[in-house]
């Protein structure tokens, strides 16, 4: 399992892995928004939590096809499926690698980008916390979508259509945490809901994903 994680991480970081791409995409989305809505700082401050969360979500989505697709094309997914490691474990490792190379960096640079959008002071810490807590769920749900569409030639667009509705609850709770933190309201409830969502996704979805991959490899 360890070896598989290391392998995935190295593949992602090396050239062609697209490691920096999702971060750059996140940056561009955040830069584009003020051009769209105008430079008034109070407006930007109000929509900043939502923009940052939606941007992180889209950046996460963009890198999903590399979770299984490359391995499926060169045949190593078949090898993994027949290895002694249970396929559910492979799924967990793959999603973890995706989170480490996408979700965690996104959460780390999000506060820096929040400066661009004039996010009010108390939001920064909770922006990082909510993203760090929520992006694992995004990675796991995305891995499920990637597992469903792994056998398709043009799966990319379909993947977005399948995965985005599943992202709704995570997005709601995540952005709500930041919004409430900015307004100095109690954030316990959305925080607990987000954590619960992440844990539930990691507990249940590996089985569904592994089942989907088995069907696709049949």
């Amino acid at each position: 399992m360890w070896a598989l994680l290391i392998r995935d991480l190295t593949l992602a970081v090396r050239a062609g892995g697209g490691f920096g791409l999702s971060l750059a995409f996140f940056l561009i989305v955040v830069v584009l928004v003020p051009f769209g809505v105008g430079p008034q700082s109070d407006v930007l401050a109000r929509i900043a939590p939502g923009i940052l969360w939606v941007g992180a979500l889209l950046a996460c989505l963009l890198s999903l096809d590399r979770v299984f697709h490359l391995d499926f094309e060169d045949g190593s997914l078949d090898l993994l499926a027949t290895s002694p490691l249970p396929l559910e474990g492979v799924v967990v490792i793959k999603a973890l690698a995706h989170w480490l190379t996408t979700g965690l960096p996104l959460a780390l640079i999000a506060p820096a980008l929040a400066v661009l959008l004039n996010l009010p002071g108390p939001g920064y810490l909770w922006l990082f916390v909510s993203l760090a807590l929520g992006t694992p769920a995004l990675s796991m749900i995305g891995a499920f979508g990637a597992g469903l569409t792994v056998g398709l030639k043009r799966g990319g667009l379909l993947l977005s259509l399948l995965v985005l509705p599943l992202y709704v609850p995570t997005l709601i709770f995540g952005a709500e945490i930041v919004r409430r933190a900015v307004d100095a309201q109690a954030i316990g409830t959305p925080l607990a809901m987000l954590a619960g969502l992440t844990l539930a996704a990691w507990a249940c979805l590996p089985f569904a994903t592994a089942a989907a991959i088995r069907i696709n490899l049949r």
Binding site: V168, P169, L197
Partner: peptide
């Protein structure tokens, strides 16, 4: 999976 998420979304949206 969609059914589970649809139910979660319903309550998340309420919230």
């Amino acid at each position: 999976v969609g059914s589970v998420f649809a139910v979660i979304s319903r309550y998340a949206i309420n919230f």
